[in-house]
């Protein structure tokens, strides 16, 4: 099966700094892929290149076999590429329901309608309410987004991206800053996403990474250090040296990690 998302020799320079260095990457439909690497490895830059927030210096990006390298962000989104942001990018004055109704309307191509009020299309509203229910946001769906607790905002960040039923979803540290007690919620939500959706997770938390990923890419200094299955990554001496050394190797001896690897 051809990859749903692919990059060939992707480069991004900011002046003299190389943020993405010759990255060739392929993602199969339904993948559960994690992108890890130390701080400053260029993970978020890579996601920004994929989603169209940044334009690469050179190289090519294919979405479903189509060259989308020069496409603007909104066009890529329309073609089935969705993302979440490490720092919340929400509409503070909207309610969660309005947010999801808009995202779904846009995905269905009816967001440019201007004669009838929002909410008259009950199929969209019901689908939006359904999604909010599944993402544990039903109780707050009529409140102002800006007034929601941080954990709920993080869930909404995922909900917006899922609303368009994308083929590829890029999750940029979905649990960043979420208190320990609410982390499980985020994990459960990510675990319950449809199987055919290809997911890329960027995360620092190794527990989360190894519970989630079936394959990994390790980025260092903008380039791919190594790719492989979780067990290959754990046992790779370069990874231990460059990356895991920084994050305490003993983390890998935790019992549930072994279960995830098995």
């Amino acid at each position: 099966m051809p990859p749903v998302l692919e990059t060939k020799a992707l480069h991004k320079n900011f002046g003299g700094l190389t943020a993405t260095n010759n990255v060739t990457f392929a993602l199969a439909a339904g993948a559960r892929h994690a992108l890890i690497g130390p701080n400053g490895a260029g993970k978020t830059t890579f996601v920004n290149l994929l989603s169209g927030v940044l334009t690469p210096t050179s190289g090519t990006i294919y979405l479903d076999g189509t060259d989308v390298t020069r496409w603007p962000a909104h066009k890529r989104a329309g073609a089935g590429l969705a993302r979440t942001f490490q720092i919340n990018q929400l509409f503070a004055d909207f309610t969660p329901l309005e947010t999801i109704v808009l995202a779904m309307s846009q995905a269905k191509g009816i967001a440019s309608r201007w004669l009838r009020p929002v909410g008259t299309d009950t199929s969209v509203v019901n689908a939006a309410a359904d999604l909010l229910q599944r993402l544990m946001l039903a109780d707050v769906m009529h409140l102002r987004v800006g007034s929601l607790p941080y954990g709920k905002q993080r869930l909404l960040e995922i909900a917006i991206a899922v609303a368009s039923e994308p083929k590829v979803l890029l999750l940029d540290e979905p649990a960043a800053g979420v208190p320990e007690s609410e982390r499980e919620q985020i994990l459960d939500v990510v675990a319950a996403l449809p199987g055919e959706m290809a997911l890329v997770l960027i995360e620092h938390d190794m527990d989360l990474v190894f519970r989630f990923a079936r394959s990994l890419t390790v980025l260092v200094l903008g380039g791919v250090l190594v790719e492989g299955s979780p067990s290959e990554i754990v046992n790779d001496p370069r990874v231990r040296q460059v990356y895991l050394g920084e994050l305490h190797v003993e983390g890998f001896s935790r019992p549930h990690t072994g279960a995830a690897l098995g």
């Binding site: 909207f94 967001a111 004669l115 609303a163």
Partner: peptide
């Protein structure tokens, strides 16, 4: 009050997110 109006408010509220959900800003 229409979906079109909502998408305008979205652009005003957060243009990065508006683009990310596919709105042709």
């Amino acid at each position: 009050n229409s979906p079109f109006g909502l998408s305008l408010r979205a652009i005003k509220g957060n243009v990065t997110r508006a683009r990310a959900i596919g709105i042709p800003v």
